Simulated assay, not measured.
Amino acid sequence: MKYQTLIKQIFIVGKSKWFLYFLRGKIFSFSSFEIVTNLKRTVPNLDYIIDVGANSGQFSKVASFHFPNAIMHVFEPLPNLYPKIEKMFKGKENITTHNLALGNESGTIKFNQNEFGHISSVLNISTDNVHYPKGNGLSQIDVEIKTLDSLSLFDEMEKGTSLLKLDVQGYELEVLKGGEKTLNNLDYILIEANLEQLYVNQPTFTQVNNYLNSKGFELSDMLDFNLGAKNKYIEIDLLYKKVQG
Rank of each mutant, 00 (worst) to 15 (best):
A63Q: 03
E115T: 14
G179W: 06
K87R: 09
L190I: 04
A101Q: 11
L173S: 02
G57V: 00
D51L: 06
K177D: 10
G53P: 03
V168C: 14
G160S: 10
T5G: 08
Q58T: 05
K181I: 04
L6T: 08
E34D: 15
Q9N: 15
G117R: 07
R24Q: 10
I71D: 04
V62E: 06
K159E: 15
F154G: 12
T147P: 12
I234A: 12
S32Q: 08
F19V: 09
K8Y: 12
I125W: 05
Q113C: 13
T182S: 05
Q197M: 00
I119Q: 03
D51T: 08
S214I: 02
G107M: 07
W18V: 11
F75T: 05
K2M: 12
P133A: 14
F75D: 09
Q202G: 00
S64W: 06
P83A: 00
S120Q: 04
V13M: 11
Y21D: 11
S139F: 06
V208Q: 08
L78Y: 05
E115Q: 15
H131Y: 12
Q202F: 02
K61Y: 01
N112K: 14
S64H: 05
Y48G: 00
L20T: 13
P68T: 06
F65Q: 02
M1Q: 10
L20F: 11
V122K: 06
G135I: 10
T206H: 12
Q140F: 14
V43N: 00
N231T: 11
S106D: 07
Y240Q: 01
E174D: 06
G178L: 04
G137T: 15
K232V: 05
T37H: 08
D224W: 07
N136E: 15
K87E: 13
V130S: 14
D221A: 12
S152R: 15
G179M: 01
D155F: 07
L183C: 03
L100V: 09
F75M: 10
P44Q: 03
L190Y: 07
T206R: 10
E156G: 04
P133N: 13
M157I: 07
Q4R: 03
N226V: 14
I109Q: 12
N136R: 14
T42M: 00
D221I: 01
L198Y: 03
F205R: 10
F111R: 08
K84A: 12
S126W: 00
D142A: 13
G107P: 06
F217I: 01
P203M: 03
S29H: 07
K134V: 15
N213K: 07
T127D: 12
M88L: 15
S120Y: 09
E34K: 13
F89G: 01
N45G: 00
S126V: 01
K40Q: 08
V130F: 06
E156H: 05
Q169N: 09
I95V: 12
L190V: 10
I50C: 06
L46A: 01
L138K: 12
Y171W: 09
D142G: 11
K84M: 14
